[in-house]
């Protein structure tokens, strides 16, 4: 091999590595949350269709938007996104309308469909695929379970120094607002001083503020006994080793999150993308997604093929009550969002 052959070979490999994703018939490029990277979810689809699913995980819609701004048309096929962000994603032109035919829309839990955010101008753009709660997780052996049914426990002195706060300002501000009885018609700028005051109180009584893994680790290692903003996603994977790991929807209610799946408007492989959406929303795909190794949460499809044990961990039988007694994320407009982030940053620095 000559010097130049070798040089061009190396350059070709390098350029192939940095070149944009390209649309091949047997490949699907999906921009997703971490629960979609579980081989238990992907392998059956790949084997059935003889394709490869390329996964790119992201955290936070802002990160996804940054990725999309740097991508070429056709780079991405499937998008999993925070349900409440679907309208702004549609507004930006990223999602294609979905044909309702063949999608199990009637099997989705009532109250989870959220038609107002998934259907815009009469067209369906995304479908909720998984949901859960930002409420209170706790170690049943260390706290009084009855105390956990009141959100005010998070800023009382009863468990000072034993609380971890989940580091995401939208659900936590929502949770505080619910605890203060301010959430009925959304949150306004006038209510932020009261919310700020209680966020600061909560911080003073907390041991840490952390991401998913950090707050889970803190609860599992005994550093804290309570996760503010926790839920089934935080404790379900810990229950196998410690059955004392619990979560509850407080009497005032909790915050309900959901993630949605859609197909990109400029998907390179729209047919395969559609098949993937149908697979994920089907009973088998829903069961695998709900029990993904990254985090567990409720499947949106009420006919998900979960075992009785899995349903127990997810509190399947209480979902009707939980859904009724919980609010979807209130998403502020950009100006209010900036105010949310202001008081959250102040709380972190407090």
């Amino acid at each position: 091999m000559t010097f130049w052959t070798r040089t061009f070979g190396i350059a070709a490999v390098f350029l192939a590595g940095i070149a944009p994703l390209h649309a091949a018939d047997d490949e699907l490029n999906a921009l997703v949350w971490c629960d979609h990277s579980d081989p238990a979810l992907l392998d059956p689809f790949e084997e059935e269709h003889g394709v490869t699913v390329n996964i790119k995980e992201y955290e936070g819609t802002g990160a996804a938007l940054a990725l999309l701004e740097q991508s070429q048309p056709g780079d991405w096929d499937v998008f999993v996104v925070d349900g409440v962000d679907v309208p702004r994603i549609v507004e930006a032109g990223y999602l294609a309308p979905l044909d309702r035919e063949g999608l199990p829309l009637d099997d989705i839990f009532p109250g989870i469909r959220d038609s107002e955010i998934h259907e815009i101008g009469g067209e369906l753009y995304a479908v909720p695929e998984k949901f859960g709660y930002n409420t209170i997780s706790y170690n049943d052996a260390k706290v009084n379970a009855g105390d956990m049914r009141d959100i005010a426990v998070l800023w009382s002195d009863a468990y000072s120094g034993r609380i971890a706060i989940y580091d995401y300002y939208i659900p936590l501000i929502n949770l505080v607002a619910i605890g203060l009885g301010l959430r009925e018609d959304g949150i306004t700028a006038d209510e932020l001083p009261a919310i700020r005051e209680h966020l600061l109180k909560m911080k003073e009584r907390s041991a840490m503020v952390g991401d998913v893994v950090s707050v889970q680790t803190a609860l599992a290692t005994g550093d804290v006994d309570i996760i503010a903003g926790g839920g089934e996603w935080a404790t379900a994977v810990l229950m196998a080793e410690d059955p004392n790991m619990e979560w509850v929807n407080p009497d005032q209610g909790g915050v309900r999150w959901s993630q949605s799946i859609g197909v990109f408007s400029d998907a390179g492989n729209p047919e395969l993308a559609r098949k993937f959406v149908e697979y994920v929303l089907g009973p088998e795909g829903q069961a695998r997604l709900a029990t993904s190794s990254c985090y567990w949460a409720m499947p949106s499809n009420s006919k998900a093929a979960l075992t009785d044990e899995e349903k127990t961990v997810l509190r399947w039988d209480e979902q009707e009550t939980f859904i009724a007694n919980s609010w979807p994320y209130f998403i502020p407009d950009p100006e209010l969002d900036a105010m949310f982030l202001d008081i959250w940053t102040e709380m972190l620095q407090h």
Partner: peptide, 12 residues
């Protein structure tokens, strides 16, 4: 951390 807070959700 303060820098990342600006981009995580708001993409600022």
């Amino acid at each position: 951390q303060a820098i990342l807070l600006q981009v995580q959700r708001r993409a600022d």
